[in-house]
Amino acid sequence: MLHIVNKSPFSSQALDSCVQVAPGGDLLLIEDGVYAASSGTVADNFMRDIMKRFRVFALGPDLEARGLADRLIDGITPVDYAGFVDLVARNKTCQSWL
């Protein structure tokens, strides 16, 4: 299934809860969630751990808006809005960790 996180890992437990509950699957970071996709933060190692179990995507327009496009952690796939739709369409269910 697809998990969507839209909160910064520095101010919310959403990403934490998501990866502790979900066994794996697709993980899409959107809105402030994309801060978790940027390298060199205190969440960097945490994110790399997550990537062992999840395929991780980040919404490109949200990365660009926040000036993060050139700091994406290797292995995280940026997607555009059409890519977002594809992810939703190819997963049976979708959980937003609000």
């Binding site: 509950v21 979900a22 066994p23 269910t93 979708c94 959980q95 609000l98």
Partner: peptide, 15 residues
Amino acid sequence: KALGVLMDEQDVILS
């Protein structure tokens, strides 16, 4: 873990 498994079994999830 058990909740995660249960979640994976659903047809529809409302968050």
